[in-house]
């Protein structure tokens, strides 16, 4: 046996170890401080600015009753909705990017947006009440993903390529039908449907948060527990199988959790793009690619990004749908991340 070639540039193990821990500490601090700041700003800023003292008083229900209403019925549920939806989109995107071993995967890749969008346009088109929109969106998303999975299934395996292709095929097919329906429907209905298709948190209240929130919380816990499965899948099909992973079961479970998260997010806020695509990329830059870190941090970062975007959408002279803000801000950020990735080689 010849001696091991020891590269002179090898850093001592201890410093590298510390860097990993430091990165985790840095990421945690960054996200928590960011979340605190955004939540504080979201509660204080708006058409009626409140001071922190007024916020505390309103929280304890002993201040100005108008402030109480603004805080408890308008700003707090909306901030919570933004946090919950953002967390769901961030985690869903991270799960899918990990499972599909593809950085282009977003929560909407498996046909969720197209399925939800089509059902919503149908619901609005046949003149059903708006309260059916969230449930319809949720069902449309879940059913479409189910069809994509059935299409991708071949014998006893589910291949990544077939999942991605199936998602693209169903998305364009349902997208086409949706466009056709929109073209044929009267003006008022287009407006109502478009508002939802772009994605907005305007007017979201306790109802949405309390109905969908607990489900998202449960799915988020389940999703984070799948971290090791995602890590195993990143080793390739043969090695993962050799390590005792059932590819079909893992891909079905991870896909199911990711779909439930994204469908629930969509049922609250409509089709908010880019959050689920970009957040996992940013998180991987912060903490590396171990999904035991990527998944929980993507949850936090998703909540941060969407609540920040909603703040921007809300405080301007004209309120914008938050989906427009994420798209306008998301694309340049994505390009920036790609550029850094190439430059840093990380």
């Amino acid at each position: 046996m010849t001696s091991t070639v020891r590269s002179p540039s090898t850093p001592p193990p201890s410093t590298q170890k510390r860097t990993t821990k430091q990165r985790i500490a840095f990421a945690t601090a960054l996200l928590l401080v960011g979340l605190g700041l955004i939540v504080f700003l979201s509660l204080t800023q708006g058409s009626v600015p409140l001071t922190s003292g007024e916020i505390v008083n309103a929280l304890l229900r002993r201040g100005n009753p108008i402030h109480e209403t603004i805080l408890w019925d308008l700003r707090l549920p909306r901030v919570l909705a933004a946090l919950v939806v953002g967390a769901a989109l961030g985690l869903s995107g991270a799960l899918l990017q990990g499972m599909l071993r593809n950085g282009l995967a977003s929560p909407f890749l498996l046909g969720i947006s197209a399925g939800a969008g089509l059902v919503v346009v149908l619901v609005v088109g046949v003149g059903l009440l708006q309260i059916w929109v969230p449930l319809g969106a949720w069902l449309g998303a879940v059913l479409t993903t189910l069809m994509v999975y059935l299409l991708a299934r071949r014998g006893t395996t589910i291949s990544v390529e077939r999942l991605v292709l199936g998602g693209v095929a169903f998305s364009s097919f349902f997208g086409a039908i949706q466009s056709l329906l929109l073209l044929m429907s009267p003006d008022g209905q287009i407006q109502a449907a478009l508002n939802w298709l772009i994605g907005s948190l305007n007017g979201r209240g306790w109802n949405e948060v309390t109905v969908v929130g607990p489900g998202i919380l449960l799915a988020a816990i389940a999703g984070c527990l799948m971290a090791r499965q995602v890590n195993l899948l990143s080793l390739g099909d043969d090695l993962a199988t050799g390590l005792g992973t059932s590819l079909v079961r893992s891909r079905c479970l991870i896909g199911a959790v990711a779909t439930l998260l994204a469908a629930s997010a969509v049922s609250i806020a409509g089709l908010i793009g880019f959050v689920g695509l970009i957040v996992p990329h940013g998180v991987r830059l912060l903490v590396g690619t171990d999904y035991r870190l990527v998944l929980p941090f993507s949850t936090l970062a998703g909540a941060l990004v969407l609540s920040a975007a909603d703040l921007v959408a809300r405080v301007g002279p004209v309120e914008l749908p938050v989906g427009v803000v994420t798209a306008v801000m998301g694309a340049p950020v994505f390009i920036g991340l790609l550029y850094r990735r190439r430059a840093g080689g990380a």
Binding site: N231, S234, L235, L239, R284, T289
Partner: peptide, 11 residues
């Protein structure tokens, strides 16, 4: 296996 998928970023 003969060819390994390199998990990017894992130590």
């Amino acid at each position: 296996p003969q060819q390994q998928t390199l998990p990017e970023g894992l130590t």
